[in-house]
Design a protein around this nucleic acid. Structure first.
Length: 509
RNA sequence: ACGCUAAUAGUCUAGUGGCAGGACUUCGCCCUUCCAAGGCGGGAACCCGGGUUCAAAUCCCGGUUAGCGUACCA
């Protein structure tokens, strides 16, 4: 199995079985946009709920908001996105090398050309007879590459608007109201889930780089002088996290360093408790999602890799078939954004702490929904030598949790089975009913989309009110009274007992 | 973004300047008392737009999408 083929296989299942498909497929598609199908939507929902539960609802000082995806230009003027997202690029006609036009002028003339309009830049190119620094070939026309989607607000095009390139800005521009809601006490966090948009030059790699993508973010505001006084630190201090330090990167690392969150902060591998806290939560979330500890780590990004607002990024990278991919960004944004917006809007963003006015610092875990979903798909994908494939999803992310089958359609088995299916749905399970064809094929179909458990109704069910639960991962079966089914499934789903224990227990009975 | 390659049912694929074929999937019926493999039948495709031609799914041009390379990437 070549590595690139794994992604192809996953894309194939995704399209066939209703996980994800390209947007506007019948019209040839639109690069970088994807639609979630029925199973993809259920799975995506579970990922969001897992995040919401552990990052928001379990916390006392974190609340979630939902802001507009389209924002006026002034927001991005202040945030710095306009500058750092809007680059004039120029490409060599001969060797295809691409350069920033202002950068290349500076190199040739020594004078800064930053922020000049294209016509001015063009003039400078002609005046100075600038050639390609790589091959001395002719450079093509300068083009503006705007990574933000631009539009106009108002019927007469009064002001420019942009689709947000990250969800974070909604939180910073609402800071004053939000701080007021939190009664101006630190620390507090504001969470947000939603779409962001980047007009990528060339979107590739399926869900890993789309032009519209969903983020689950928190801006955690804290007093920089109390950066190691996280209120819930004790709860995560002992959690082991995988770290790749800058030093390890220089030496050429093979395996990440596995240490507790506590050690990571004490040994300065991670700058403070607020950041380490989220590295620990993310680690736990990924383990629940079925990604093994050896398949992901937090890499301290090099300076040149970090975004313009960041004083240090620790990105969660997953070991995928297409290479090491950034799945989650963890940034220390310090007071960068609050400072910028306070200044540009002439607002006072300071908070009084211990009779001292301070501008809070920000720690930002930013999780990409699509990237996480793809990681789970790839890490749970299984195939055997017959070419059969299935997903070994943990129940926590499985889009469907149980499939109910009659052994055959006749003799009232189908009706009985459908009743059981309805009851399971009423009990809150994501249940799927299937009566077509042979039973073996239905097991296979259920396995392909990763349904952890199948329930079969046979002739004993009619006589003795029993059902059979079949475990996807072992293909083992156990017969039990119908009245115990809901509780049994609950225990299996929660992982309170594994299937073998379950069989042993039932046999003892 | 540029370059190379490609595009035929849901999937995989055959094919030719002259009626588009198969396998699997799917649907219906029959058979079938537990792991995709029986029988019969049905449905379903030449990426989009131009051009050349009596005739284009096939040749040419443009676009779209995908893969790869280079570049870009918060």
């Amino acid at each position: 199995m070549t590595e690139e083929r794994l992604m192809d296989k996953i894309i194939d299942v995704c399209k066939r079985r209703g996980f994800v498909s390209p947007t506007a497929e019948i019209y040839g598609g639109a690069g970088g946009f994807f639609d979630y199908g029925p199973l993809g939507t259920l799975m995506r929902q579970k990922i969001i709920e897992l995040w919401r539960q552990s990052f928001v609802l379990d916390e006392d000082m974190v609340f979630e908001i939902s802001g507009s995806t389209l924002l006026p230009e002034s927001v991005f003027q202040a945030s710095g996105h306009l500058e750092s997202f809007d680059d004039p690029l120029v490409q060599c006609a001969k060797c295809n090398s691409m350069y920033r036009a202002d950068d290349i002028i500076k190199r040739n003339t020594g004078e800064s050309a930053e922020g000049l309009p294209i016509a001015e830049l063009d003039k400078k190119f002609k005046e100075n007879e600038i050639k390609c620094p790589n091959c001395q070939g002719e450079l093509g026309n300068i083009r503006q590459f705007n990574l933000m989607f631009k539009t106009e607000i108002g019927s007469t095009g009064g002001i420019n608007g942009y689709l947000r390139p990250e969800t974070a800005q909604n939180i910073f521009i609402n800071f004053k109201r939000l701080a007021g809601f939190m009664r101006n006490k630190l620390p507090f966090g504001i969470a947000q889930f939603g779409s962001s948009f980047r007009n990528e030059i060339s979107p590739r790699s399926f869900l890993i780089r789309g032009r519209e993508f969903e983020q689950m973010e928190i801006e955690m505001f804290y007093d920089p002088e109390k950066e190691n006084e996280h209120p819930r630190w004790e709860e995560v201090a002992d959690i082991e996290i995988n770290i790749v330090t800058r030093e390890m990167q220089e030496k050429g690392w093979k395996k990440p360093l596995t240490i507790t969150a506590e050690e990571a902060v004490n040994k300065k591998h991670v700058p403070n408790q607020y950041l380490a806290y989220y590295l620990a939560l993310e680690t736990e979330m990924f383990l629940v999602l079925g990604v093994k500890a050896e398949d992901f780590w937090f890499r301290h990004m090099q300076d040149h890799e970090a975004p313009h607002y960041s004083a240090g990024n620790y990105d969660l990278e997953a070991n995928l078939s297409i290479g090491h991919m950034e799945i989650v960004g963890n940034a220390l944004r310090t007071d960068y954004d609050l400072l910028k917006h306070a200044k540009a809007s002439k607002s006072n963003y300071e908070i009084v702490v211990d009779e001292k006015k301070i501008l809070p610092h920000v720690c930002e875990p930013s999780l990409g929904v699509g990237r996480i979903l793809y990681t789970v798909l790839e890490k749970c994908y299984r195939e055997d030598d017959r070419g059969w494939t299935w997903f070994q999803f943990p129940p926590a992310v499985a889009p469907l949790e149980v499939a109910v089958f009659p052994l055959m359609k006749k003799d009232g088995l189908a009706e009985f089975a459908h009743d059981v299916h309805t009851e399971l749905k009423e009990a809150g399970y994501l249940s799927f009913y299937d009566e077509s064809g042979k039973i073996g094929k239905r097991y296979a179909r259920a396995d392909e989309v990763g349904i952890p458990f199948c329930v079969t109704i046979d002739y004993d069910s009619l006589k003795e009110y029993t059902v059979t639960i079949r475990d996807r991962d072992t293909m083992e079966q156990i017969k039990l009274p119908l009245e115990d089914l809901e509780v049994a499934l609950g225990e299996l789903m929660e992982g309170d007992s594994d299937f073998q224990e379950f069989i042993d227990y039932a046999n003892e009975k």
